Computed example of a mutant assay.
Amino acid sequence: MPSPQISIVAPLYNESESFPHLVQRLTQLMDSLPLPIEVVLVDDGSRDTTALQMRQIALTDPRYHCVFLSRNHGHQLALTAGLAAARATEALFIIDGDLQDPPELLPDFYQKMQEGYDVVYAVRRKRKENFIKKTGYFLFYRLLKSISYVDIPLDSGDFALISRRVADVLNQMPEESRFLRGMRSWVGFKQTGFEYERSERVAGESKYSFKQLFGLAYNGIFNFSEFPIKFMTRAGGVAIGIALIYFVIVIVKKLFFAGIIEGFTALLFVIILFSGVQLMSLGIIGEYVLRIFFQSKGRPLYVVKEEIIESTVYSSQFTVGKVPPQTMSSTTTQRLTDNG
């Protein structure tokens, strides 16, 4: 097939139930558009039959380009692997495999890009999640926007159409704790939003646990805001202020009322206050140290086990994710050359 003009990138993890629906809708979309399009599916170490179904479609339809990671690396890193593998010359369309992000919006996004935008990101007008998740998302995006030094759009996830040059910049960013929607905003260029109503999952259950959602939120806050580290200074100032006020009260009572505040309760209050501030400060510092620790290891962001391009299987003999082109082996360079 000719070099794809657009790549549709979808990370998958245990999506065997929704996979037939995904393939059906993506195939119909590609058949209806005059542009050369490839679909990059990334298996993030699935434990069901997702990888098997991916192999079947990739070996029968050369428009499907499949990447199989060696284990579960997480949604953001699987998406990063898809961006790195995409061969599109013009734009990359990022969706989720559960079809909550309708792929049929590609023509609308592409039309907006033709107006001169490098990034067309989706803005969720209405969600189908439960009340707790909807409230959490609502509060998080507004908190992040208020404290971030980057203008991250409200209610905007990874669902977007990005130009080739934006994708190239993202691929060069070696961050280990990735928050792609924040990185996308940081890159800059001309960006615009496109409102849509998010659909329900076509099948199966969400693979994002509350723990993973909190981890993603932490990456957004600690990677794109100076607030946590500055908050420690402010919290320390407040604690000192409270201590000084308390000290003044004690002195006034001693000098003018012939007595001082006594008792276990007052002492306990002071100990809890200062201990809490110190432990919270250590926790915030620990978050930054942890990120520095993982980043300093220099490990690849992910490891590719196998790749199917235009119905041809390639078993990877190298790790990828942070390998600059000039350090790739000759085998790697030859493989990439052979496949565009």
Rank of each mutant, 00 (worst) to 15 (best):
Y141E: 02
G74L: 13
V187N: 04
T80F: 11
D151E: 15
L83R: 04
D158M: 14
A86C: 06
K190E: 05
G182W: 00
P102I: 07
L69F: 03
L106Q: 01
E115C: 08
D158H: 15
L106H: 09
E104D: 14
T135H: 11
G182M: 07
F93A: 04
K112G: 07
R127Q: 05
L180Q: 04
G188Y: 00
R142T: 13
K133W: 10
F140D: 04
T135L: 13
D151A: 09
K112Q: 14
R142Y: 14
E176R: 12
V67W: 14
T89V: 14
G116T: 04
A81Y: 08
G188T: 03
L154K: 12
L154H: 10
N72K: 15
E200F: 06
R142D: 14
V202R: 01
K128F: 07
H75S: 14
Y149D: 09
H73A: 15
G182I: 06
E175W: 00
R178N: 09
Y121K: 12
R181A: 02
M113A: 15
K126Y: 02
I147C: 12
Y196S: 12
E197V: 15
L105D: 13
Q191I: 11
A91Y: 13
S177P: 08
V187K: 12
I147D: 11
E104W: 07
M183A: 12
E129I: 07
V119D: 09
S185R: 07
V123N: 10
F159N: 00
G188V: 00
T192L: 07
A85L: 01
L83D: 02
Y117H: 10
V120L: 01
A85H: 00
A81V: 10
L170G: 06
